[in-house]
């Protein structure tokens, strides 16, 4: 899989994003890391130009409620409905449904095991190959829950 890992907004905490990027690389994926402080428009452009299958976005600044849905909306507008979007960082549980509603398929909080990330990517791959909705604009109500 080609996976873009991005840090939207003004948040400078990228340890988590870098660890995830590295773990996904070690799981055999091609990972493109955008660097810090990207706008939603820049992130979507990277996803398009790099023809990514998945986009992982990380936020620890509390701006996820605006930035994450905005990125999902821009992806859909650009026709990238088949890209799977997942997120990570400090995302309170009661704020997650609105992110899932915008098309995200997984949110990973602190303490997530890399094993779980790998299982999530595996689940996405098997859904793509069986033509089940898993992209940001493909609808359906599937979201990742650990232990699946």
């Amino acid at each position: 899989m080609r996976i873009v890992i991005a840090k939207p907004g003004l948040d400078g905490h990228d340890r988590g994003a870098k660890v995830v990027a590295r773990a996904l690389r070690d799981a055999g994926h091609e990972v493109i890391y955008t660097g810090l402080r990207r706008t939603p428009e820049q992130i979507v452009r990277t996803v398009i130009d790099e023809d990514a299958d998945m986009l992982g976005i990380s936020s620890l600044s509390g701006a996820h409620a605006f930035l994450f849905p905005r990125i999902c909306q821009l992806l859909v507008e650009a026709g990238c409905i088949d890209v799977t979007v997942f997120g990570g960082g400090i995302i309170p549980v009661d704020e997650r449904p609105i992110l899932f509603d915008s098309g995200m398929r997984a949110i990973f909080g602190p303490g997530t095991k890399m094993q779980e990330m790998s299982e999530f990517v595996g689940a996405v791959i098997s859904r793509v190959s069986s033509n089940q909705p898993v992209g940001v604009g493909e609808g359906g109500d599937w979201v990742w829950s650990s232990g699946e």
């Binding site: 055999g28 091609e30 990972v31 493109i32 890391y33 990207r38 452009r45």
Partner: peptide, 15 residues
């Protein structure tokens, strides 16, 4: 697997 990071230093790549 691969970590592709050259675009980080190319600001024009995103703009």
């Amino acid at each position: 697997g691969a970590l592709l990071g050259d675009r980080i230093r190319m600001e024009s790549a995103d703009n």
